[in-house]
Design a protein around this nucleic acid. Structure first.
Lengths: 216, 216
DNA sequence: ACCTTTGATAACAAAATTGTTAAACATAAA
DNA sequence: TTTATGTTTAACAATTTTGTTATCAAAGGT
């Protein structure tokens, strides 16, 4: 009856999910403090009373977004650990690539999570509870596999935790610092994707050279 | 005449610098949006009218802090590039260590800068102007030195920009993610400092293994 | 002593932001 | 048709946050 003058086409069927999606965008971009419920409502194309009707408080709405993001983050690190029965060296390569590809599809996830985790330390319980035990299992398993290869003489000695941090570092940092890096790297790489795809193979090289006795 | 009932002892001589230091703390911890001028004034032990008297606006005060931090950041990356005449391999080692040590004394600097740079893209001009030309000079110089060593057969081929990003990654990430990493790493390392000092030598190892043909 | 400048305070004003409420509206079941 | 239920809106209220102003006090120069 009334003309549809929404700014954005309605891929969202109901307002509740529209609000959630708008909140996701806004919180990811600006963080909890930077995001405003009025802006979220506007982006979702609803009055801001509707936002409070469905989610009551800003903190509530944020929590829903944050919980989902933190699960995603945790899952990516855990699922990156490949189960298949292949040589450790290839397993590690696959781990790096899996994690990188995940981050490539969720480019601002690490910055968002790290940030909210640091500015509001009480939220850390959440990720600790979600990741800690699983991560430790994976680390001890990885460590014993590494140690076997060290005794064989095919691997250089390294602590599993150090290896994991190295991998996370070279994988995560390029996405966090992408805009800054690109302004400097623009004479080497013309597009973000070109830079990132080069980084993907570079990262494998860095880690394998760190752990393998014989270089390829 | 009036008793001194300030919470903190007056190492600050005047109120203006007290405000600036309080602002620095608050902004670094909570970012622009999370920081409140009232909280800054309280932390500095002055009425919040004084804050406006000296700095007029929150944005103004922030700018002073941000400018200083961004200069510090830029400087650290530039000055890390060692001038002395020593073998390239040692020069790179020193670069890594210099940058790591700087970050160790400014642990939340990268997160702060990256964050403000991303949530308010208009600020990027600042760092671009400050770093870009200098960084490019350094990169071309480094690239030619690398290429020489590659021809000699002592270095593996690598782009200077990739090397720099690798170094920044493994140096910066541990500080950004420190609280999260420590909850997982606590069975390997008991203190933050223990972890970080191990990381310092680990990082040198990672990079040298990446670029040297013959491993140590 | 008088005037000007600077530092300081309290009280106020304005804006932004979050949250609430009462009433209108729609829809489907009774 | 009536009732009950969930949805929507507009208007309002409360709080927080930023910024201003009128005023006062001290210090220094003339």
């Amino acid at each position: 009856m009334i003309i549809n003058n929404d700014k954005e086409e309605n891929t969202e069927h109901n307002k509740q999910t529209a609000i959630l999606h708008a909140a996701e965008e806004e919180f990811m971009e600006k963080g909890f403090d930077g995001a405003k419920t009025t802006a979220i409502a506007a982006k979702a194309g609803v009055t801001h009373a509707m936002l409070h009707y469905y989610y009551r408080t800003k903190a509530n709405l944020f929590e829903q977004v944050f919980n989902e993001k933190i699960s995603l983050m945790a899952q990516s690190f855990v699922s990156a650990f490949v189960e298949e029965d292949m040589p450790l060296c290839q397993k590690i390569q696959k781990m790096i690539e899996n994690q990188f590809d995940f981050l490539n599809q969720n480019r601002d996830l690490p910055r968002f999570v790290v940030n909210e985790l640091i500015s509001k330390p009480e939220r850390r319980e959440l990720i600790i509870h979600k990741v800690k035990s699983m991560a430790k299992q994976i680390l001890t398993r990885l460590q014993s596999e590494i140690d076997k290869h060290v005794e064989e003489g095919s691997f250089l000695p390294i602590r599993a935790i150090d290896l994991m941090v190295d991998i996370a570092s070279i994988n995560v940092f390029p996405f966090i610092a992408l805009p800054i890096v690109m302004t400097i790297a623009d004479s080497f790489y013309t597009t973000e994707d070109e830079f990132l795809m080069a980084k993907r193979t570079e990262n494998v090289k860095v880690i394998l050279n760190r752990i393998l006795v014989n270089k390829s």
